[in-house]
């Protein structure tokens, strides 16, 4: 396989805080690679370093075959959508797109085929000022602007943050289709549930990568049993569940509580009988497969120590 991004030991600190602490990973050609972690994990800093907008304190990376100090070569090969990117609100949709095409030394006509699928939806509004577009539309236009010069590697920094679930789903569907055209895409997000959309993900927290693997592998590797529990009185259940012996952690997940237990100690019957004892009704207790969020929290707690 062809590596498009190889990062080795990238470290960056601002004053006393470590934004990135010895980060290494590789991204292959045509991969949709996700960086998943909360605000302040170091995702934006990492993207800025890889697009040469910011210098790392130490470490290096090869982006499409070029070292980070080869700024000009990298800049013409990557597409980058910064986190707070919001286009020029006083320019029209078309003017925004044409501007970015010109700045990158190309024309909209030349690379229209790349953005066609996304841009057709914007075309009816092409004379509207970008400031007057809805959130989802802005996102699509921003993506078009980042794609118009036919980049080989695309960096999208939190494209879905603050976007409602519907637009998020649409956005990820678009990325899936872009990936099929052979484009390598690195995307960051604070939403754990988006991990499943990626080929591989890096879980990142406080400047450190906790784990890198395909999402399915990460969840398979989860060392504990996850038992989902619900009853008619969830408020009471939250307190009663603390009485379960050998529970490693208890967290709410939607309508269920997730209890993690060491595999050798885990027992559904034990929990069921406890709930009965406490007077819970309509209970549901089941062994489930861990999700990315279970894994992330487990790794977070593990890394603390």
């Amino acid at each position: 396989m062809n590596e498009r991004v190889i990062a080795t030991n990238i470290t960056k600190s601002f004053r006393s805080t470590n934004a990135l602490d010895d980060v290494s990973f590789t991204v292959n050609e045509g991969e949709l690679f996700g960086f998943i972690g909360p605000d302040g994990a170091g995702k934006s800093t990492l993207f800025r370093i890889l697009t040469t907008v910011m210098n790392a304190d130490s470490g290096d990376a090869l982006v499409d075959g070029f070292h980070l100090k080869d700024e000009i070569a990298i800049r013409s090969r990557v597409g980058y959508m910064p986190g707070k990117f919001s286009l020029y609100p006083d320019l029209s949709v078309q003017e925004n797109l044409e501007f970015f095409a010109k700045v990158f030394g190309t024309t909209v006509q030349e690379n229209y085929s790349i953005i066609k699928e996304i841009y057709v939806q914007l075309e009816p509004f092409k004379d509207r000022r970008a400031g007057k577009l809805s959130g989802g539309m802005k996102q699509k236009l921003a993506l078009c602007c980042a794609l118009i010069h036919k980049p080989r590697v695309l960096f999208l920094d939190e494209p879905t943050t603050g976007v409602d679930p519907v637009s998020r789903v649409e956005f990820w569907e678009m990325l899936g289709r872009l990936k099929q055209s052979g484009l390598t895409i690195l995307v960051s997000t604070p939403y754990m549930d988006e991990a499943s959309r990626c080929d591989r993900v890096a879980l990142i927290q406080k400047g450190k990568i906790l784990d890198i693997d395909p999402p399915g592998v990460i969840t398979k590797k989860f060392p504990l049993d996850v038992i989902a529990v619900k009853s008619d009185n969830m408020q009471k259940l939250r307190k009663d569940i603390l009485k379960v012996e050998d529970a490693e952690s208890v967290y709410g997940f939607g309508e269920f509580l997730h209890i993690t237990m060491k595999k050798e100690n885990s027992s559904i019957e034990k929990i069921e009988s406890l709930l009965k004892q406490q007077g819970h009704q309509h209970t549901e207790v089941k062994l489930i497969e861990a999700g990315i969020e279970d894994c992330f929290m487990h790794l977070m707690e593990h890394n603390k120590n």
Binding site: T51, I72, S76, Y80, G83, K84, S86, P89, F100
Partner: peptide, 13 residues
């Protein structure tokens, strides 16, 4: 402020 400068930084300008 709008992040457009960051996008321009990655351009060959």
């Amino acid at each position: 402020e709008t992040g457009t400068l960051e996008a321009l930084m990655v351009s060959p300008l």
